[in-house]
Design a protein around this nucleic acid. Structure first.
Lengths: 225, 225
DNA sequence: CCAAAAGTGTTGCGGTTACACCCATGT
DNA sequence: ACATGGGTGTAACCGCAACACTTTTGG
C-alpha cells in the first residue's frame, strides 16, 4: 500500500522539455530560450512546460512548442524521462524530454513579448543551462547520432530538395567524421529512400548537382550508414 | 504562458509501471498481479504505483517492486513514458514504464495479504490487462529483443553459472529463432564477456558441459549476436 | 547400446572499405 | 585558366553464414 497514514495523496507533476535541433552553419544547433517567468531568468533553457490534465504528452509538446517558438508539424520523438527530485526549484516536476528535428533553414527564431530571447546555439558550444537541460540536450544529441545510423530519420533534417553532397554533409556533421563520397552514394541510393527530381542546382561556382527528395517522409528502420 | 486565467495550476501526476521479465519453462515470462485496491480488481496488471514528491523515479521503481514482489537489486531500465489522457480511470496519471530482468529460477512469486494474486505468465499468452499494460509489456518485449543484439544485457537474465547451451537457449527464446551452435560460441567467446568456471555440469544424461559466468555484471555496449 | 547435449574448423559469399580521375559551372 | 564540388568503378579484405561429425555421460 502506498501510504499507511490517511493523508492527502501528494505526487509529482509532469512537464515536457523539448530539444529542438537543426543544422545551421555547418553545425548541429539547439534552440534555446530565456523566459522571463523562469526560475532561472538569467539562464538559457530549452522550451517546455507543464502537461495539463486533459492533454496527452504529445499534445503538450505541440502546445508548448507552438507557444514558445511558433513551430508546428515537425518531427518529434520521446527521448527520456528525467525525474531527479530537485531538478526544478519550484517543486517536484518530472520532465518527459523530447527532441524535435527541423530542416535546415526552415526556421529563424523571433523573440516575442513573453519570451525574452530565443536563439540557435551550436550544440558543441552551449552554455550552462537551467534545470538539467544540459543533460537533456546531451541525451538528444546521442540519440540523434545513434538513430542516424539505423533509421531514415535524417529526412526530418533536410529540406524538400537537396543534393547528395548536402545529405552527406549532414551525416558528417552529426556523426563528427568524414565519409567516403562514393561509398556514401552507393549505400544511400541502394536504400531506395531517395528519388531524383528533374532539376539540378544552378548558380553555384561548380558543376550543377542532381537534386533529390525523400520518397517517403515517414520513419523507417533501415541500415543507412 | 500556460494559462491566462489565474486559477490553481492543475497538472498530471506521475506513476511507474514495471514489466518484470524472466525465462521460465523455455519461454519469456512477465510477472502479473491482481491488486485488491485496483480500479480493475478482476484484471491482471503489472506492478507499479505513484511517485512521491520526495523520491526519484528510480527510487519509486525500487519501492513499488519491493512492496509488491519482494524483489530488490535487479536490473532495471527506463522503457518509455505513457501519457494518454484516459489511461487511468481514477484521474490523470502519466506512467514512466520500466522493465526489470530476473535470472531464471531466481524468483518464485508469493501472494501476500495486500496483493490478491501474483504469477508468471508467458509473454506470448498474456491475457487482456488493466490500464495500457498490454502496450507496456509489448514495448518491453520489443526493447529486450533489440538490446539483446547490441548489448550484454543478457547477463541479467542468467544465473551466476550457466553453460553455453543455456545461454544460447536464452537468446533463441527471446529472439524467437534458432542460432547456429558453432557460430554462436565463436561470437560469444570473442566478446570476452564470459569466463570459464573450474566446474562442469554433472548428473545429466549427456556429456558434462563447461560452466561459465559473466566477467562483468554491468551494462556494456557490444555487438553480441 | 542408445539418447542427448557438448564440443570443435573450414570454406564460400557478400558486403564494406579503400582509392583517383574527369566533368561542368562560375569567376 | 582556375577553383569548386559533382559524379563515377574496381579490387582487396574481412566478417558472417553454412555446414557434420566425434565425445561423454546417464539410463
Amino acid at each position: 500500500m502506498p501510504s499507511g497514514k490517511k493523508q492527502p495523496i501528494s505526487v509529482a507533476a509532469v512537464a515536457v522539455d523539448i530539444a529542438v535541433l537543426t543544422i545551421k552553419d555547418g553545425q548541429l544547433n539547439v534552440l534555446l530560450i530565456k523566459a522571463n517567468n523562469s526560475p532561472f531568468p538569467e539562464k538559457w533553457v530549452i522550451p517546455g512546460g507543464l502537461v495539463k490534465p486533459n492533454e496527452s504528452i504529445g499534445d503538450a509538446v505541440k502546445r508548448h512548442l507552438l507557444a514558445k517558438t511558433g513551430l508546428k508539424n515537425v518531427y518529434s520523438e520521446q527521448l527520456y524521462t528525467f525525474g531527479k527530485v530537485d531538478r526544478d526549484p519550484r517543486g517536484r516536476v518530472v520532465s518527459v524530454a523530447h527532441f524535435v528535428l527541423i530542416p535546415y533553414g526552415a526556421f529563424e527564431p523571433k523573440t516575442s513579448e513573453a519570451y525574452a530571447d530565443i536563439q540557435w546555439f551550436p550544440i558543441l558550444k552551449i552554455p550552462k543551462l537551467g534545470y538539467d537541460h544540459n543533460e537533456i540536450t546531451e541525451t538528444a544529441f546521442e540519440r540523434l547520432k545513434a538513430k542516424l545510423e539505423y533509421t531514415n530519420i535524417v529526412y526530418s533534417l533536410m529540406p524538400k530538395e537537396f543534393t547528395l553532397g548536402d545529405l552527406q554533409k549532414t551525416y558528417e556533421i552529426i556523426l563528427g567524421k568524414n565519409l567516403d563520397k562514393r561509398n556514401f552514394r552507393k549505400k544511400i541510393l541502394q536504400t531506395k529512400l531517395l528519388k531524383k527530381i528533374s532539376k539540378k542546382t544552378l548558380g553555384e561556382a561548380h558543376r550543377p548537382a542532381q537534386l533529390y527528395s525523400f520518397a517517403k517522409r515517414s520513419p523507417q528502420f533501415i541500415e543507412v550508414i
